[in-house]
């Protein structure tokens, strides 16, 4: 029998790295290209940098920026609510609810958002007034005139939120379906009601799957709000357009708007990262699984 050597010998790995000329060439080419791009943009006199700087914090631009933020946040919030509702309907046993939900997503995903926005803005042509009361032509308790209620802002919000809801429904549905059916059974065995199962067990786990695409939808929505300019929604692009119709600085004003869109989407991306981390709770990646049983995630609450 051979005997194991007991003395441990240090054998450090200090290998010489291979030369990779292709990598250096590629990097040099990319730097050169970016430098050239920056140079042509900076020295280009047609861009009117002075006009851009003068308008970047213009009161009208900041007002439009605020409308863009409001439209994005509100339509995403309403869209998420509609999406959860439509997804829960889609997954219910009731065929009528399933059909209603399917009809909703089919229609609003199947027609262009631009058309929907113009439609909502002009809804007064179809329904001059609407109210709350007995349906199918019965008496009304409250009644509004469409051309008083439907402002560019409300039309924009209706169009964006309802359209977004149709997309969110698919995202939420995929999230709910990703949760192991055993989770539902375990929760039901504890005696939870359907609502408790959904709220306490299924949705929190579905969130992990729902959050990343919802973050993308949010970032996308920041830019989609610019479509509202067709109904003069008073958001960032509309305001920029109004200004260049006066001073003819088309490109400069588009640059101003783009800078702000980039600022918003950058902030949103950072926020998305933190929200995703929060919903990763309990989902340990493989590398840290090795460390399992070694340390608790947080201290005993005192």
């Amino acid at each position: 029998m051979t005997r194991e050597r007991t003395a441990a010998v240090e054998l450090p790995v200090e290998a010489v790295r291979p030369l990779r000329p292709g990598r250096w060439l590629g990097a040099a080419a990319a730097v050169l290209f970016l430098a050239w791009l920056a140079y042509t943009v900076i020295v280009n006199e047609n861009l009117h940098w002075d006009v851009i700087v003068a308008h970047i914090a213009d009161g009208r631009i900041l007002g439009g920026l605020w409308v863009t933020i409001q439209l994005t946040v509100l339509s995403m919030a309403i869209g998420l609510g509609l999406g959860v509702l439509a997804a829960v309907m889609q997954l219910s046993d009731n065929p009528v609810l399933r059909g209603t939900s399917a009809l909703y997503t089919w229609f609003f995903r199947g027609t262009p958002l631009l058309v929907q926005l113009i439609f909502w803005f002009n809804i007064g042509l179809v329904f001059p007034s609407f109210g709350i009361g007995v349906p199918f032509g019965g008496p009304k308790l409250i009644e509004w005139q469409a051309n008083e209620v439907i402002t560019p802002f409300t039309a924009a919000l209706l169009g964006l939120a309802i359209n977004e809801g149709a997309y969110m429904a698919e995202i939420v549905r995929a999230g709910i379906r990703s949760v192991d059916p055993g989770q539902r059974e375990a929760a039901e065995s504890l005696g939870m009601s359907h609502r408790q199962v959904l709220r306490r067990v299924v949705l929190p786990q579905a969130m992990r799957v729902i959050i990343p695409p919802t973050g993308n939808q949010f970032i996308s929505m920041l830019k989609t709000t610019s479509m509202v300019s067709v109904i003069a929604g008073a958001e960032l692009l509309t305001v920029a357009q109004r200004i260049y119709l006066g001073n003819f600085e088309v490109i400069a004003m588009l640059v101003v708007a783009s800078v702000w869109y980039l600022v918003l989407t950058t902030i949103a991306s950072v926020g998305q990262h933190f929200v995703e981390k929060r919903y990763e709770r309990g989902h340990v990646r493989l590398s840290s699984r090795v460390r399992r049983n070694l340390r608790p995630l947080r201290k005993e609450p005192s």
């Binding site: 055993g182 059974e185 375990a186 005696g191």
Partner: peptide, 26 residues
């Protein structure tokens, strides 16, 4: 009704082959 069924299930513990612990809770 579902609520009455939930009440019946409360008194019966169930342990599954694949545990089905809630992964988002300690």
């Amino acid at each position: 009704r579902p609520a009455e069924l939930s009440r019946q299930r409360r008194g019966i513990g169930m342990v599954f082959q694949r545990f089905h612990l809630f992964p988002h809770r300690t």
